[in-house]
Amino acid sequence: MQELISTLKQQIVEQLNLKHIKPEEIGDDQPLFVDGLGLDSIDALELIVLLQQKYGIKLANPEEGPKVFHTVRALAEFITANQKK
């Protein structure tokens, strides 16, 4: 799990072009949107693309988005659960 979390942080920084942030500066449980990392709706779309391109997972239910993308840990857990299926 920790390895996946580290990889995800790197991929998020790269995909979202977060030049002012180093991957290790993102907390495992830090909220990604609004008050946390400050991501917005276009970033949410980029994360959906990242999930599909890198992990082959489609977010079938959009209502799950806020929960899945809440933190890097939540995202890692979602990937782990869905890749096992």
Partner: peptide, 13 residues
């Protein structure tokens, strides 16, 4: 590159 699959939305927007 993605063979007309899912692509990053930012350049499109």
């Amino acid at each position: 590159a993605e063979n007309e699959g899912v692509v990053s939305p930012t350049p499109f927007i």
